[in-house]
Structures are given as C-alpha cells and as structure tokens.
Design a protein around this nucleic acid. Structure first.
Lengths: 119, 119
DNA sequence: TTATTATTCAACCTAATGGTTGAGCAACGA
DNA sequence: TCGTTGCTCAACCATTAGGTTGAATAATAA
C-alpha cells in the first residue's frame, strides 16, 4: 500500500531529492542508471574525479532514495529508484496549471514536447 | 522564438534551479508567488528568519531565473517565472517513460493525482 | 594464507550556504 | 529638509558540500 508521509517528512524528501539533483555529476549518474544497473566502478569510470568522490555522490543519492545498493561479490551494484523523481515531479506539477494558463514562455514548453509517446 | 541554450548552460540552469528548490523556505516562497506577486516584506512576513535572509533567498531564486524583481516606489515586487520550472520538469520527464513502464511505486504516483483543484 | 579487487571510511582542505547584525541607500510623506 | 519605509550590501559565523589522499574492510582468487 501507499506509504503515508507527514508534511515535514515530505518536505525533507524534497530537500534531499532536489539537492541531490542539483549536482551535474549526480544527474549524470541518474541518467546512466536509467539505462540499467551499474557498479560503483562502472559509474565512476567516465568521470575525472576520484573513485571515492563518486562513492560519496552515491551516498547522497541513496539518502535521497534515488539509488538502492545491493551486494554481488565484492561489488555493490546500484539501481535507480524512481519514486523520489515522481515526488519531485509531483511538486513541480502543482504549478503546471499556473504555467498552462499563462503565456509566459509557453513556447518553450511546447517546443520541448517532442515525441512524448505518453501523457 | 525559443532561446537556444548550449548543453553546458542547460546543465548550469538545472544546477541553479534544482539547487534553488532544495530549500524549504525557497519552495515556500515559490508556492506563495504562484498565487500572485508579492513584495519582499510580504514574502518575509510568515517566516521566523530575518528579513535579510529572505532577501538572500530571493537572490538565489532570481539567479535561477525563478523570480523577477521590478520596482514600485520603495518596494521591489517579485514575480514568479515558470520557465525554469518547465526546464526542471522536462529533465524529470525524461524518466517518465522509465517509471511508467515500471511498477516500482507506481501506486504513489497514482494516489497523489487527486482532485487537483488548485496549487 | 596471501594477494587482488571493489568499495567504504576517516581525516583533511576549500569554497559555498544559510543564518545573523549593522550600515547604507532610494523613494516617499510630512 | 527630515524622518520613515523598504530593501540591499557588507562583514561575519557555523555548518555543509565536494573534492582530495590514505587506510581499512570484505569477498574472491591463487
């Protein structure tokens, strides 16, 4: 069933999720994980920063609920969790009405709606 | 016409927008401005923190493009700009497919789509 | 057992963040 | 002109964040 969250906890989740997404390295990690699970080493490989720094970023993502880590031998494969993304999108969605009823930069919105195979 | 942005600039905008939204005070300000323009004083009033702290938060929001400040007498009325919210929503939207094809916590998403009378 | 691999932990540095207070400034009302 | 209002700027402080390096741990391979 659906987990019930108090308003404060919801706020804290939004703090964590938006904060996690505020870093380009972490967004890149999320992007990468969207195409499939990966180990810390695989995730760190494309970045110029140290291995340990990526590990730290993963902890931030994990605290935000965006990443789930399991174990397989010495590796710790990471999996993307989308629920926090839904929560963040939901918060933004509260303002969809506002921007749909407004003409402020509506062109940008429409232009970005490419294929969009689903609502 | 739609303003063209380079990928780095788009990344920086996402840094700024997600970063701006990572703070509960700033989200509250955005929420407040969604219901209409307000002066700095009006915005600061409900918060326990100092006037100047709210002014700082407004600068962060302004740098993220979320707030536009004009002048009217001694007041500096603030207006919400939605384009950065659209940009952030667009980034999250890239993962919509992923979560629509998945059953991970989909219930949460559906449950939150209640009446939606207003923001 | 020992070595190797994959990863985390710990300590440290620097810069940014969120808050404070006090001073400054611009616009209005008297 | 003078005082008040509305706000920003500047300096400061404590905490957090993103990075580093080096040591520790855990699982596997030899």
């Amino acid at each position: 069933m659906v987990e019930q969250r108090s308003p404060e906890v919801r706020e804290q989740q939004l703090d964590a999720v938006f904060g996690a997404l505020a870093d380009p390295t972490r967004r890149a990690i999320v992007r990468r994980l969207a195409s499939g699970d990966a180990t810390v080493g695989e995730l760190a490989e494309p970045f110029a920063i140290s291995f340990q720094a990526v590990s730290k970023h993963l902890r931030v993502l994990e605290l935000a609920g965006l990443v789930e880590r399991s174990r397989r031998a010495q590796q710790r494969p990471c999996k993307l969790r989308i629920e926090p993304l839904v929560a963040a999108g939901g918060w933004l969605g509260d303002y969809r009405e506002l921007w749909e009823s407004s003409f402020d930069r509506l062109d940008v919105h429409l232009t970005k709606k490419k294929g969009s195979s689903h609502a």
